[in-house]
Nucleic acid binder design. Structure first.
Lengths: 337, 337
DNA sequence: TTGTACGCGTTATCAT
DNA sequence: ATGATAACGCGTACAA
């Protein structure tokens, strides 16, 4: 910038004013303005974001803390986040927080994140106490997406109505005649916990005790479907349908059923949750619960770097968006009792 | 930091020296050192990375420019990149460059990327001339991963030996008796182009003219398999096997075959390329070409922020790592001629 | 209308 | 062994 000033024969502050479209009470002669702008262009000047940031300007960086980018669902969420941020001139920096033990390392991400104007938590991190505490005390605004509906949230959260989503899926199955419906979920809090309890409540309302071996917990990976299915068939052979807490798991179940020679949906119906891209191209295609990902992300970003901020007073806003059921070919009428 | 200095009753520069483990020729009394360190800890002091960066320190930020995070293969690559960077104390900031027309926006990512110490290109961006030009002229070190093997590369590239990978896949198919093998690829340069020409060369060596309708190009998505299969069966009904340039496409083919009632591998064999996680859990599981992703990423990161730098003189280093074939259940002996 | 001077939080250099 | 001071690039209050 000083180069530009020197070349134009004006003070550096003048250049700054011109290039930043000086606020109202200041005025610059049109002639100087044009000259400086021309020179700045010729010299290929571009402002140094770091120096700006040092002056207190926002870094235009938004930190995204996520457990597993490889999870197709979160990959889609990050995609949406990236698009939304780009539209607002922001970039997203990735913070990895793989395992729970990685808490300390996740902290690192937070520290680095001090350069970020805001932090978005993708998924459930309620178990990560130190992380949450640091985030709460930190300078940056924080928003939790798909973070569950726990009480006393320390920051704004936006998510999906898990209870309603599960209801949709389960009602679909019962309307097809299924009564003995197993659940395969993930040992985690937040959304996973909510889906499980919504399932349990539904089953009890139907007069079936879900605690009688119908609930199975595995890792959230396509590979875990095999062991889950084996467990289900062994402990509750009367099962005619399975509700999986994520599409990833559901994919694993489709695979495992195929390996065992079980036909879907003739012998077994499967419903997932997430509607990942692969759900529309699996064998067979997967009936699943779809969430308005883009909307959820957009709401979260709005709270982070938009107008609609939370003052920090009173309970943190908590928005729940509504999912819908996508019926495909993995579910069908029950063929045995 | 000035707070710490005031509280300790020493000069602020002294604090800086202590906290940064001052270089050799400087000495600090042990007593002062401990006192300052204690106070810094009590005050919860942590250095301001932006101010450091302004002084010329590296930002410890690595920019990753990628077309589609949703692509399971690149999601895996980003995961590996993130892990590798974290181990070196770096964070990765995501630069989205979706469509080709998005070139201008990709530029934005580059500009923001000025804060980055290095840039990693994930995938092929040779068609993005302005992007490449800007990157070449830029300050940051640039490395292209899976960027193809074009000549006169303006920066270091690390990738996979596509020719060898295709050879593995095709040899596997011919050894099973397949002769009429179709190819489904993507209209793009870099790796996609190399896989296609490697396929064409192999076919010609086998005495089959690949130009006779055996080559099909689609979008790289699971959804595009349906139209691809329809086109293949219509134009070349003698086909008994298909080689897909990516697992994503291969997944779509498995799905499309199932919808048409074609049994895999009895009626049709399918081979993919990438070995995405889903390839091990599809119906049926997919025979595919696996790349050493972690190694490729590690090599790239080494060139970016490691010791092994390229001076900029002479031709840019270009490393090719070796893929291997993973044989699963989507390929079998030919059953018709 | 434009120039001067200061400060953001560090680190490096020079002087004490 | 430590303190004072300049500089990094920018925005801005104040002076001219």
């Amino acid at each position: 910038m000083s180069d530009v000033a020197a070349a134009a024969g004006v003070a550096q502050s003048t250049v700054s004013r011109i290039l930043n479209d000086a606020p109202a009470p200041i005025s610059v002669s049109a002639e100087t303005r044009e000259r400086v702008q021309a020179i700045a262009r010729d010299l290929g000047y571009s402002p140094h974001p770091i120096a700006r940031a040092l002056r207190g300007a926002p870094t235009m960086l938004l930190g995204a803390i996520v457990r597993d980018i490889t999870d197709p669902f979160f990959a889609g969420a990050i995609e949406a986040l990236s698009v939304e941020c780009k539209a607002r001139g922001y970039s997203v920096v990735l913070g990895h927080a793989r395992a729970t033990e990685d808490e300390a390392l996740a902290m690192t991400a937070v520290l680095e994140a001090r350069q970020c104007d805001a932090i978005v938590l993708l998924g459930d991190f309620t178990a990560e106490h130190r992380l949450v505490a640091d985030l709460r005390d930190g300078r940056a605004r924080v928003v939790g997406l798909w973070h569950g509906s726990e009480r006393d949230r320390p920051f704004v959260t936006v998510g999906v109505d898990n209870h309603f989503g599960v209801q949709l899926a389960m009602t679909h199955l019962t309307s097809l005649g299924h009564r003995h419906i197993a659940y395969v979920g993930v040992r985690s809090l937040g959304d996973m916990q909510e889906r499980e309890s919504a399932y349990a409540r539904f089953m009890r309302a139907q007069g079936v005790d879900p605690e009688a071996g119908y609930i199975h917990k595995v890792e959230n990976s396509v590979g875990s479907g095999v062991q889950a299915l084996a467990g289900i068939l062994e402990r509750t052979p009367d099962v005619t349908a399975i509700f999986a807490a994520t599409d990833n798991i559901a994919m694993g179940l489709l695979h495992a059923a195929y390996e065992r020679g079980l036909r879907i949906p003739d012998d077994l119906s499967v419903v997932g949750f997430d509607d990942i891209p692969m759900a529309a191209a699996s064998v067979p295609t997967l009936t699943t619960v779809q969430m308005p990902i883009a909307e959820i992300v957009a709401r979260g970003v709005e709270y982070c770097i938009g107008e609609e901020v939370w003052s920090g007073e009173g309970p943190a806003p908590h928005e729940l968006l509504t999912p819908r059921l996508i019926v495909r070919r993995s579910t069908g009428a029950v063929s045995r009792s």
